[in-house]
Amino acid sequence: MPQSQVLIADDDPLLREILQHKLSAAGYAVRSVEDGRAALEQVQVERPDILVLDAMMPVMDGFEALRRLKDDPASSDIVVVMLTALKGDEDVVSALRLGAADYLAKPFNPDELVARLQRLAPAAQA
């Protein structure tokens, strides 16, 4: 059974590592990058099923990356889950409007994230 691919874009190395291990343990194939531009580039190279996206990253922020991803028909159906320290209502609303499938604020519960991802795109594809 092929694994679902998850791409993590976050500038915090500790968070990347925690997610890397947690999601691998849940059965996903995981890659990670440290900013929005790198995420878009990685999407071109190897299309993930899920993108876990931080908002505040250097070079290109998460909202901009999300917008571009959704604008491009080739990548618009990638499931995007925002995971960010921004807690404002307007940030949540604008992310969901832009096409994010879900929005979690940091600090987050890793088990909850895994459960939400499983619902959006199960680790093992049918």
């Binding site: 250097p58 070079v59 290109m60 922020d61 901009e64 404002g88």
Partner: peptide, 11 residues
Amino acid sequence: LRSLLALQYPS
């Protein structure tokens, strides 16, 4: 501008 819009600040 892209780099400014990516600054780390809540508002």
